[in-house]
């Protein structure tokens, strides 16, 4: 599904250059569930951001589905993120001024690949699948954190992405909700065949993955 070759990310700070990620080589086949684990500040979220086209690497290449992501123009990269990648962030990432159904429909509306009616029908179906069929017109502030996270998964799936990136999606949730969210993500991976990459520092969650990548100090250690 994607391949990283000698990928690195460095930042200039007042104290000098900081290498957040250094020389990573990684291959994840299509349809696989991979977990990237490591301590806070190890560089796992930065690596995921570079794979997803959110943060430009300082070195190396990243190919997703055969596309060299960071050789794309800004416009093509935006279309690529919209069409190929789904994100679930570690924070409540819904737009507070839009209803749930609008939040879920938004990526498809940005991409303009299908009609508004078809988009909203699909958004409604995805929210229904996530158990939020009764909250289509609700605003994010009117539902719980776990429900918001499920809505974010629905939004990530609206364009039927090939790659679903989840950056600590259960970090601030209770145990039961964490299990429900993980079940949803696993179901997406198994039923739809979507490649799933989960960034977490929770080993219990990572153990469910087919491939575990352990990062420390910006490099793969296992």
């Amino acid at each position: 599904m994607f391949a990283c070759r000698q990928v690195g990310k460095s930042y200039r700070t007042e104290r000098g250059v900081v290498n957040a990620v250094a020389g990573i080589d990684l291959d994840v086949p299509a349809g696989r569930f991979a977990a990237i684990i490591g301590r806070s500040g190890s560089g796992k979220s930065t690596l995921m951001a570079m794979i997803g086209g959110l943060s430009r690497p300082s070195a190396g290449t990243i190919e997703v589905g055969g596309t060299d992501v960071w050789r794309l123009s800004e416009t093509a990269l935006a279309a690529f993120r919209n069409e190929k990648i789904g994100y679930v962030f570690q924070f409540a990432s819904l737009l507070p001024t839009l209803r749930l159904i609008d939040n879920v429909a938004l990526p498809a509306m940005l991409g303009r690949r299908q009609s508004t009616a078809a988009t909203y029908t699909r958004a409604s179906g995805l929210l229904d699948r996530m158990g939020l069929g009764g909250y289509l017109d609700a605003y994010p502030s009117e539902i719980s954190a776990g429900e918001q996270r499920r809505a974010a998964i629905a939004r990530a799936l609206i364009n039927d992405p090939a790659l679903l990136l989840a950056d600590e999606p259960t970090s601030d949730l209770d145990e039961q909700t964490e299990i429900e969210i993980m079940d949803e993500l696993l179901a997406v991976n198994r039923e739809l065949g979507t490649t799933l990459v989960l960034v977490t520092h929770n080993l219990a969650l990572a153990e469910q993955a087919e491939q575990i990548v352990h990062i420390a100090n910006g490099a793969i250690v296992a």
Binding site: T75, A78, R81, N82
Partner: peptide, 16 residues
Amino acid sequence: RAELGLLKAIGASGAQ
């Protein structure tokens, strides 16, 4: 910033 970043992450172009 976070909202704009989110919009960008889900595929909003610079023009959008």
